[in-house]
């Protein structure tokens, strides 16, 4: 019996598919697939088809896809957290602080946008493509602009490290949608909904992996300190939250405990050589945010 895997057709076909798929010509992939099928080699046709899908599924998510995913997740975050708080001046202030921090983050070339959620709970979220949210309750717990800068820096860290996109690409739910992963999802609105719902569940209900949260803690203080904010403000804030939240199980379902976070931030400051000192801007925060909450 002839081994089809070693046949010239197979070798040429796979080479052709790999080359053409990687150069972004799926039409030609279909031509190769049809040619293999017409030659009677169904196995090769399936291999060409499968290889192309696999490559498409494994390649990173592009900027337009990221924007679609970010918008869809933002819709759910706003819907589940009481809508956007209608205070234009407060929104503008949060955006200015966030934009200042984002200017020197590790992914400064995307547009970061910030909104305040009309919720008393203490929380913040980041969706892909720079959609970042803080709750009104969180702003009430903050006492200086440096603390706000570090909190926004933490959320920016989730975006720079593409934490949600990583969740999506690793998701079994997506690989279960089709072998092609996002390929199928982006062409099928129902599948896209499954992808987003899975990501929202992870973000809002289950929480990201603790490693991702701690990585964002480290990045948050580094980004804020690059702009000139006092990095120790974040430690002050975490200590305050620890006293407010105590051992609130609901909160720790989605976040590492505060002692762990404080320790990680202290280590990061030491390892990065970030020295205490810098701007706190307590009064500016009180003037531009305090009275509007």
């Amino acid at each position: 019996m002839r081994n089809r895997l070693s046949s010239p057709w197979f070798v040429v076909g796979l080479g052709l598919v790999t080359t053409l798929t990687l150069s972004g010509c799926p039409e030609i992939q279909h031509v190769a697939e049809r040619a293999a099928r017409q030659s009677g080699d169904e196995r090769l046709a399936r291999a060409i088809h499968g290889t192309g899908q696999l490559i498409g599924g494994l390649l990173p998510i592009g900027p337009e896809e990221e924007e679609s995913i970010g918008q869809a997740i933002a819709l759910q975050v706003i819907g589940r957290y009481g809508g956007v708080y209608g205070q234009p001046e407060l929104t503008r202030y949060v955006n200015l602080v966030g934009r200042a921090v984002s200017l020197t983050c590790d992914r400064a070339n995307i547009e970061y946008r910030f909104a305040v959620l009309n919720s008393e709970t203490i929380n913040a979220f980041a969706a892909p493509s720079g959609y970042i949210f803080v709750t009104r309750g969180l702003l009430k717990a903050i006492q200086s602009e440096a603390e706000l800068a570090a909190v926004l820096g933490h959320e920016i860290g989730h975006v720079t490290q593409k934490h949600i996109l990583d969740v999506i690409q690793r998701s079994k739910q997506i690989s279960g949608v089709a072998e092609a992963g996002l390929a199928y999802a982006s062409r099928n609105p129902d599948a896209f909904k499954n992808v987003i719902d899975g990501a929202v569940k992870k973000l809002l209900d289950e929480g990201l992996d603790q490693g991702k949260e701690l990585e964002s803690d480290r990045l948050g203080v580094v980004f804020a300190s690059r702009v000139g904010y006092d990095p120790t403000a974040y430690l002050t804030f975490l200590n305050r939250l620890r006293s407010i939240k105590g051992d609130d199980r609901a909160f720790f379902k989605t976040h590492p405990n505060f002692s762990n976070r404080i320790s990680v931030v202290q280590n990061a400051l030491r390892e990065q050589g970030v020295k205490p000192g810098g701007a706190l801007l307590t009064e500016r925060f009180a003037q531009r945010a305090g009275g509007r909450l």
Partner: peptide
């Protein structure tokens, strides 16, 4: 912004 691999993946997946 011109991450070639991401752009390629997007172009490939976007029927």
């Amino acid at each position: 912004t011109e991450n070639e691999l991401a752009a390629l993946g997007q172009r490939y997946r976007r029927g």
